[in-house]
Nucleic acid binder design. Structure first.
Length: 579
RNA sequence: UGGGGUAUGGUGUAACGGUAGCACGACUGACUCUGACUCAGUUAGUCUAGGUUCAAAUCCUAGUACCCCAACCA
């Protein structure tokens, strides 16, 4: 029995209160209605910040037996593209935001499919005297915006409804140049909240739209469109980020304006649904830039290899790097949701990835920076097939045969001629275990006469320790991973460091690019165990002691390419750094 | 400066006038055929100053700090 009180976040508290009051009515099966949505603009790829929103919105639908929509807020053809639509659908599905399958599927929608309805609402507002066509240019509007002391000026706001209607019709039918006219809401030119100083509802944009083609040349602004989209879809809780707090009065004003004089028997029709906008704090991560605009810049200036570069904080990038969707969901659960801005340490994300992968990833051996080891007393020409567990965390996953011979590779970092205190790895005279194999003791080294670099270690093995245990109960402090040289599979391995050197990129100079880490990518040729020769794109494994890796899309038959998803925690690195 | 927000250990998050709790990190130690995992323990917090109250993170007053708005972006 679990009697620990479950802490509801503030959104869940709101939903539960609403449900208790049946504020939004009920589904046909009597459960209180909860209907959320994720409303991206298709002007870039989704990133980890969007994942928080997706988890939040889908999570609410899931825990309260509601529905979840994916809706493209595609109201600006100048910035939006079909490629982004496609990528967003892929990413949302991958994250588990089941908008079109399963019990919480609300559906896939496009704001642009509501343009005709929105236009009708706009005409209604003009007729009601609540909107008018304005001839001011963007620059003039800005100049006439007023300030904290003085109200805005808008010379055309008293234009007759009939004239506005005529002009609006002309705007719609392409009679006017881009930017020459707008439709504005007649609200309050003196409002201390500038958002309410007669905001623009429609602007003229003569551009091709990815969904509506050339059907329209006027496009609705966010504030005008968004509440209508939510209303049309029957959204109950319209969840957005904190910066929209000041827009909320406008969100409500537009819906109330439409509902003015509506009701039973009204010529305008019935009242439309009025969802509730709720704001939460967006995700910020250390060492990470989340703005779509900046990520686009990284792509366009080729600072990274694309939106799905494994160093990018995009969902596509994280997926390619090897972050499991489940780990991203775990992370979103762990960080919670509030109305206070915060910056989450990226290591939290990395830890969620480690936790998930530790439980699921098969173990294999690969040597990233090979150092040759010759076993002096190994019977020449002999090869043994040794049993290695695929995942000691889960013995049910079985074992595999790994070849062992007299010539091996070990990690360069796993050998020192003379071991300092606490160095439990291989050194002259020091015995270690080769994982699943034998105990070996280093006897001497071979150095490059020119550079002095160690190019080979010579060692002896104890035949009695086959499998990795000594019958006399002898203990060793260290266990090393290894690969038999004649059987080794060359691997291209891509190691990633953070994309930015600064915890808050751009804080010093104002330009995030100034904190770009020039060494964020390191490519190595590693040596993998035989089983890696058949690696397939998407395979996720742990290279024992070296971290979690995923076979990249660039993998071709016989030429595996692995991305390091994340390292293992490395206590030794800390100890060594201190010394 | 006008308007709108937010302040709890290093980080994140609970408390809804009644014992400041949890998670992550860090640090100790145990265990270990991955210096991983796991386990045990330690660490450290209510922005400031007043006030109300038997009792304040919570209510009141005055400050302070930070964020958002003043695009025909969303």
């Amino acid at each position: 029995m679990d009697d620990t009180p479950r802490h509801l976040n503030f959104l869940e508290q709101i939903v539960e209160a609403d449900n208790a009051a049946l504020k939004w009515g009920a589904w046909p099966n009597q459960t209180p209605k909860v209907h959320t949505r994720f409303p991206p603009e298709p002007n870039g790829y989704l990133h980890i910040g969007h994942a928080k929103s997706i988890c939040l919105n889908f999570g609410l639908a899931k825990t309260y037996a509601g529905k979840f929509n994916l809706r493209f807020d595609d109201t600006n053809p100048a910035k939006e593209e079909q490629e982004y639509v496609d990528s967003i659908i892929r990413d949302v599905k991958w994250l588990g935001g089941d908008f079109d399958t399963g019990p919480h599927a609300g559906g896939l929608f496009y704001a642009s499919n509501y343009f005709e309805q929105m236009y009708a609402f706009a005409v209604e507002l003009v007729r009601k005297g609540l909107a008018y066509v304005c001839d001011l240019s963007a620059e003039e509007v800005s100049k006439n915006r007023g300030d904290t002391k003085s109200p805005a000026k808008s010379p055309h706001r008293d234009r007759s409804a009939a004239e506005s209607l005529r002009l609006l019709d002309e705007m719609r039918h392409g009679k006017h140049a881009a930017g020459s006219k707008t439709l504005r809401a007649k609200i309050d030119l003196a409002s201390p909240n500038f958002v309410l100083r007669d905001p623009v509802m429609y602007r003229i944009i003569h551009e091709h739209h990815h969904n509506t083609g050339d059907a329209w040349c006027i496009y609705p602004m966010y504030d005008w469109a968004h509440g209508l989209e939510d209303s049309i879809e029957g959204i109950t809780h319209s969840i957005c980020t904190l910066e929209f707090r000041v827009n909320r009065p406008l969100y409500d004003w537009f819906i109330n304006a439409i509902n003015k004089d509506r009701g039973p028997g009204s010529p305008w029709g019935e009242k439309i649904h009025h969802p509730q906008q709720i704001e939460f704090a967006r995700l910020n991560l250390t060492y990470t830039v989340m703005s779509k605009r900046f990520l686009l810049r990284l792509v366009e200036e080729k600072r990274v290899k694309g939106w799905d570069d494994p160093r990018m904080p995009t969902i596509a990038g994280l997926r390619r790097r090897g972050y499991p969707a489940h780990a991203i969901r775990d992370f979103c659960d762990e960080i919670g949701v509030t109305t206070q801005e915060s910056v989450i340490d990226v290591t939290r994300l990395e830890n969620a990835v480690r936790n998930r992968l530790n439980a699921t990833a098969p173990r294999v051996m690969a040597v990233l920076r090979p150092l040759k080891v010759t076993i002096e007393n190994w019977p020449a020409g002999t090869v043994e097939e040794l049993d290695c567990l695929n995942n000691p965390e889960d013995p049910a996953l079985g074992s595999r045969k790994v070849p062992f011979s007299g010539t091996l590779f070990i990690e360069r970092d796993d050998f020192m001629e003379t071991a300092p205190k606490k160095f439990f790895r291989l050194a002259i005279g020091q015995e270690v275990r080769l994982r699943w194999a034998y105990f070996i003791t280093a006897t001497s080294v071979v150095k490059d006469p020119a550079t002095g670099e160690i190019i080979e270690v010579r060692a002896t093995y104890d035949p009695a320790t086959r499998g990795g245990d000594s019958p006399d109960g002898r203990k060793v402090k260290g266990t090393l991973h290894w690969v038999s040289a004649p059987h080794a599979v060359p691997l291209e391995v891509r190691l990633f460091d953070r994309l930015f050197n600064a915890e808050e990129p751009g804080a010093r100079t104002g330009d995030q690019l100034d904190d770009l880490n020039p060494h964020s990518l390191e490519v190595l040729t590693a040596m993998g165990e035989r089983s890696l020769s058949t690696a397939k794109v998407g395979d996720t494994v742990q290279f024992e002691r070296m971290g979690y890796f995923r076979a990249d899309e660039d993998t071709t038959p016989g030429k595996p390419v692995f991305n390091r998803t994340v390292t293992l925690k490395d206590t030794w690195a800390k100890v060594a750094a201190k010394a």
